[in-house]
């Protein structure tokens, strides 16, 4: 798998933070960074996908498909390319459901 940031520099995967694309079903995660231009960041923000937001992966993208996440009670499908640019930190322990 190749990782790109908005600078388009391929990075060494072993030192990389996790991205949403690797999120597993039912995992809860904190969004730590979103790489992408102004427009995309704004749009994701509007949907609740923002740095500091806690999301739950409802369905991981199979066969290169999109990831389905739950944030603030709503479900958002995010294409794999974009999911690769959203860095997450997995939260262990059971979270109070979507709160």
């Amino acid at each position: 798998m190749r990782f790109f940031c908005n600078k388009q520099v391929p990075l060494d995967p072993s030192h990389l933070p996790l991205t949403l694309a690797s999120g597993k079903e039912n995992q809860c995660a904190l969004i730590t960074a979103i790489c992408g231009g102004w427009g995309i960041r704004q749009h994701l923000n509007q949907l609740g996908i923002r740095v500091g937001a806690i999301i739950r992966v409802k369905r991981e993208g199979a066969f290169g498909g999109p990831v389905l996440v739950i944030v603030d009670h709503s479900e958002i499908a995010i294409g794999r390319q974009m999911a690769n640019k959203i860095q997450i930190q997995v939260i262990n322990g059971k979270l109070d459901k979507e709160k």
Binding site: P66, L68, E75, I76, A77, G79, R80, Q81, M82
Partner: peptide
């Protein structure tokens, strides 16, 4: 950017 779609 690909798909970013709310699933109602």
């Amino acid at each position: 950017p690909g798909m970013i779609l709310e699933i109602p």
